[in-house]
Design a protein around this nucleic acid. Structure first.
Lengths: 107, 107
DNA sequence: GTTATATATCGACAGCTGTCGATATAGTTC
DNA sequence: GAACTATATCGACAGCTGTCGATATATAAC
C-alpha cells in the first residue's frame, strides 16, 4: 500500500473483544444456530412460564427422541434452558436471565 | 405414559415457527457463531459509521487474509455486512437494517 | 421384583466449517 | 504494456455437528 486512494486505511481499531468474551458469544450464538433449536426456543417462549417435556417437543419437531435430547442439552449447556426432573419426565423452560443477557448484547 | 405425575404433559404447543423462518434464523445465528466473526462485528460496531477494509482486520484477528475474506463473505451473505469497493480496497460496514432486525428478535 | 416408560448416552456416519497455502482477479502505478 | 498490490477464490484437510438406531438409566406401576 503506497497511498490511500479515498479514505484512510489501517486506522487503529480500539476495544477489540477479548478472546474469552468472543468465545463465549461464539458458544451462545452456536447454540441458537440450528433450526430445531430455534424452534425449541420459540416454543418455550410461547409456553410462557410453563415448562415443556421432551415428549411435548418431539412430535412438533419431527426428529427422533435422542436428537431432541441432544438439542436440549446444547441449549442447557450454554445456560439458555433450565432442566427440572419430575418423575420420569424432564421439563425444560427458558432461563429467565438468558433472554436478558441476549437482549443486552444488542441494546 | 399412563398418567401425568405432576403437571400436564403433551399440551399443544401453538405458534411453532415455520420451517422457512427457523431456517433463516439458523443462518443468521450461524453467521455470528464464530469468535472471529463476533470480533469483526464488534470492531465494525466500534468503528461506527466508518467502514473497515480487510487490511484493517487481518492484523487484529491474527488469521490469514483468505480466512478473513471468508468470514467477511459469511457475514455479508446473510445481510449483516455491506461491501463497498474503492480502488483495490474492499470496505465493509455493518448493514444498518441488520442490527434492527436482530434487535427485533428479542424485543 | 418385574414390567413399562421417559429420558440420556453411546457409536457411527455423512456433511458442514474453519483454516491454510497457492493461485486468480482486478485495480493502481509506472 | 509491465509490475505491483489488495482482495477473492480454489483445493485440501482436520475437526465439529446433526442425525439415527441401539442401549443404558431412572422412575413409576403393578
Amino acid at each position: 500500500m503506497k497511498q490511500l486512494p479515498l479514505i484512510a486505511c489501517c486506522t487503529p481499531l480500539a476495544n477489540e473483544l477479548s478472546d474469552q468474551h468472543a468465545g463465549e458469544l461464539e458458544s451462545l450464538f452456536g447454540a441458537l444456530a440450528d433450526k430445531n433449536r430455534v424452534k425449541i426456543v420459540s416454543m418455550l417462549l410461547n409456553a410462557g412460564s410453563e415448562a415443556c417435556c421432551v415428549c411435548d417437543l418431539e412430535p412438533e419437531l419431527g426428529i427422533s427422541q435422542p436428537t431432541v435430547s441432544y438439542h436440549l442439552k446444547r441449549l442447557t449447556d450454554v445456560g439458555l434452558l433450565e432442566r427440572e426432573k419430575r418423575g420420569t419426565y424432564a421439563y425444560y423452560r427458558l432461563a429467565p436471565k438468558a433472554l436478558q443477557r441476549v437482549r443486552a448484547l444488542f441494546a
